[in-house]
Amino acid sequence: MKARGTISGAARGRLRQGGLGLVAGALAVVVGGCATWPSGLGGEKGRSDAGQSALVSPELERDAYPVLSTKDAGADPGERASRPEPPRRPAVSAVPQLRTVYFDYDSAELTSETRQALADAVEWLKRHSKARVQIEGHCDQRGTHEYNLMLGQKRADAVRAFLIEQGADPKRMHTISYGKERPVASGDNETAWRLNRRVRFVVYNE
C-alpha cells in the first residue's frame, strides 16, 4: 500500500518553508475532496500558483494496485544512470504553463508552435525546481493498439529530449505512453483525431 493523500511530517516542514507551493497546491486539489487540508501549510498560496486547472481523473483516486515482488524485475544499477526510476504513483495535476502539444498523423515531430509551447514548459520547470512531471504520449484511434503504444512513447520521448536540450532537468521528467487507450475526443473524424494526437504533462505530488 502506498502512502497517498497523506503528508509526512518532513513534507509538511518543507511546505512551510515554501518553494513547493505549486506542488502543494496540486496536492491540495487532490486531497481536498476526501481529506481536510491542514491550515497554514501554504496551501492557499499553492492554489493561486497552480491556477486551479487540476485534471483529476477518477481512476487515479483508486486504492493502490497490489504491489508484487520486484526482486526479479531486472533493473541493472548501470541502467538507472540513463533515466530516473519512474515515481510509481499517479501524477495528478495539470498546470496551465505545461501546455498540451499536438502532432501530425503518424509523426512525433515537433512543430515550431510546439517548440514555443515547450519553451514555456522549460521556463516553468526551471522556476519549479522540485516538481516532477509525467510526459504522456497519446495517439489517435487509427492503427493497431500496439503500434500506437510505440508511437505514443516516441512522442513523449521526443518532447522529453527537446526539454532536456533546452536545459530542463532529465531526472524530473518521466515518460509514459497511453497509445490510443486514453482519447480525449471521440469521433471518427480529423477533428477528434487531431485532439487525440498529443503529449500532455501531469505533475506528481511531492
Binding site: L68, S69, T70, D72, A73, G74, A75, E79, R80, R83, P84, E85, P86, E146, L149, M150, Q153, D157, H174, T175, I176, S177
Partner: peptide, 11 residues
C-alpha cells in the same frame, strides 16, 4: 511476477 520494470515502455 514482474519481468521488466525499467523506466519507460516495457512493451
Amino acid at each position: 511476477w514482474f519481468i521488466s520494470r525499467r523506466s519507460g515502455s516495457n512493451l
